[in-house]
């Protein structure tokens, strides 16, 4: 089962709405609670990242029998140095984002900590694709 969601750049008002929808769907499917929580935290962080840093993009949720995968694909502008971006506390968030309480620089490393599978590909001036996966064990 595949679901696609849109995320707009700089749309702080609707921050978290996609993650809430994903969370609600997983609850309807009665996914085990600890998996829902890890997915919720990871997708929230990634959604916020897209709003703060990207030019907008899509979130694709793919639910299979034993695996839940999330793909976050944006339209740029890309990450200059991924290793640096992965470091806890490193942030390039705008003043506006910080005003809303975002941009602590924990996003990517938190996402990696939550997910069973984590892959990010990006370079400057090109789209970023973040894929994370969660095993479903009942």
């Amino acid at each position: 089962m595949i679901k696609t969601f849109e995320v707009k750049s700089q749309d702080f008002q609707s921050a978290g709405q996609v993650s809430s929808a994903i969370k609600k769907l997983l609850k309807q499917l009665a996914v085990p609670a600890d998996i829902i929580r890890r997915i919720a935290v990871a997708s929230y962080e990634a959604e916020i990242n897209m709003i703060i840093h990207s030019l907008g993009g899509t979130i694709v949720l793919d639910i299979e029998d034993d695996n839940i995968a999330l793909t976050f694909q944006d339209e740029g502008p890309g990450i200059k140095d991924i290793d640096l971006a992965m470091q806890p506390g490193y942030s390039t968030a705008s003043a506006k984002a910080r005003e809303f309480g975002f941009g602590a620089g924990m996003g990517l490393c938190n996402i990696k900590r939550m997910a069973d599978y984590f892959h990010i590909s990006s370079k400057e001036n090109s789209p970023t694709v973040l894929s994370i996966g969660f095993k479903v064990i009942e």
């Binding site: 089962m1 309807q28 009665a30 639910i63 034993d66 479903v136």
Partner: peptide, 14 residues
């Protein structure tokens, strides 16, 4: 107790 398996729940949802 949830009787249906995860696979069945996905099928129902779809």
């Amino acid at each position: 107790v949830i009787k249906a398996t995860f696979k069945e729940r996905i099928a129902f949802f779809e």
